[in-house]
């Protein structure tokens, strides 16, 4: 699916730009995209390296396992295919909590670790496991409780009440998460 989408973006993008006659800007885009990609990775690099270090301490000291234990009953219902003592559970919890607090960049390293741990339990290494899909659906439907960037931007534009959208965002998030998890649940069962 990502293969098709990637091709679609490039083919439609290039053809349409050519059709509109913007060859000049197309050249620019192609050449600067690589630089943009590097910039993005450079932004992520220190955060991921730092948090991987901190989280290793949490893992070795048993803290991660404890946190995972705390929400285990709920997570087991969501991720029935993961092992009972899976390290992934702790990382999933950390990722969701960091995301919920609007700390998107701090959440990414946890998410990547969670994927790594789930891959260890995955039988077909080329193929996404059930647990991975459930995790990503939960992650991308965005359990954001404090959308920090949005609030900051609203303040910048002198909103009378910058935080008022927290409640609407939470309600909308609940809807999209439930919808995503429900669809995921039925498709998972259909696949067996």
């Amino acid at each position: 699916m990502i293969n098709k989408l990637w091709g679609f973006f490039i083919i439609v993008g290039i053809l349409f730009t050519l059709f509109m006659g913007n060859i000049e800007s197309l050249n620019d885009t192609i050449l600067t995209s690589a630089t943009n990609g590097v910039e993005m990775v450079l932004d992520l690099l220190p955060i991921i390296v730092l948090w991987s270090g901190i989280m290793k301490i949490a893992e070795k000291s048993g803290l991660l396992y404890k946190v995972g234990n705390l929400v285990k009953p709920l997570l087991h219902k969501l991720f029935p295919s993961l092992k009972k003592d899976s390290k992934a559970l702790g990382y999933i919890t950390s990722n969701i909590v960091a995301n919920a607090m609007g700390l998107g960049s701090a959440a990414t390293p946890f998410g990547l670790k969670a994927m790594e741990e789930m891959q260890k339990e995955n039988e077909k290494k080329e193929e996404a496991s059930d647990a991975m899909i459930t995790f990503l659906v939960l992650n991308t439907s965005g359990v954001t409780i404090v959308p920090t960037t949005v609030i900051a931007l609203r303040m910048m534009y002198h909103s009378a009440n910058p935080e008022e959208i927290i409640i609407t965002a939470i309600l909308a998030t609940i809807c999209s998460s439930i919808a995503g998890l429900t669809l995921d649940y039925f498709r998972r069962r259909k696949n067996r």
Binding site: M1, I2, N3, L5, G111, L112, M115, E116, Q119, K124, K125, E126, E127, A128, M132, I133, L136, V137, N139, T140, S141, S176, S177, A179, G180, L183, D184, R187, N191
Partner: peptide
């Protein structure tokens, strides 16, 4: 996330995510 663990068969992940 899938790229980080070299998974290329993503099954129903994308369509479910976009549906949400």
């Amino acid at each position: 996330y899938f790229g980080s663990i070299k998974i290329n068969k993503t099954r129903y992940a994308l369509s479910t995510g976009l549906f949400a």
